[in-house]
């Protein structure tokens, strides 16, 4: 899987209230949520972001609430991937569960700048900065996470599991 797009850069500890403020959580419609993505981190962001773009952030991206609305809003806005130095754990599992590929890389988070064009080779964990002609490595994606992404998320994975081994009582 190759993901290519333009970068929007954010800082450390971007919390889920910044990604999708709770005042919009009276719906779970992805299109509605996408209209407010990252609004409390950058008010103009929902108007600026384009399908195919990529988010780069610092440490602890997605901290705070368990709301799956956060990765859903990001995905529904057409953002292909998030690269950060680290992710808060519930955001991390939510992203994989809904099939949003995310990557951890200190180097990429430090060196990539706003507006750079990057290309992610998801299978190899290589991030290429086309603008700067540099290459960074992401932490390898654990095999189970790869399995979830290639199954298309946890629901499809569970569906497969139920069919093969699980017997409801």
């Amino acid at each position: 899987m190759i993901l290519k797009g333009k970068v929007w850069k954010f800082g450390d500890n971007i919390d889920t209230d910044a990604i999708i403020p709770a005042r919009y959580l009276n719906t779970s419609d992805p299109k509605e949520l996408a209209k407010h993505v990252m609004e409390d981190a950058d008010k103009e962001f929902p108007g600026k972001v384009k399908a195919g773009d990529i988010i780069i952030a610092g440490t602890n991206f997605g901290c705070g609430s368990s709301r799956e609305h956060a990765p859903i809003a990001i995905k529904a806005a057409g953002i292909q991937s998030v690269i950060a130095k680290s992710f808060a754990r519930i955001f991390y599992r939510n992203a994989f569960n809904i099939g949003l590929p995310i990557f951890e890389s200190d180097e990429a988070a430090d060196k990539i700048e706003q507006g750079d064009e990057v290309e992610i080779d998801a299978d190899k964990g290589i991030i290429r900065n086309i603008t700067k002609n540099e290459e960074y490595t992401a932490k390898p994606m654990p095999p189970f996470m790869q399995e979830l992404i290639s199954a298309g998320g946890l629901i499809k994975w569970t569906k497969k599991k139920i069919k093969t081994s699980y017997q409801p009582t």
Partner: peptide, 18 residues
């Protein structure tokens, strides 16, 4: 521990979680 909605959906079906 806190998880996401999809984790809950899967656990409601299987009684298990990763």
């Amino acid at each position: 521990t806190g998880v996401g909605s999809t984790d809950v959906a899967s656990a409601m079906a299987t009684g298990e979680c990763w």
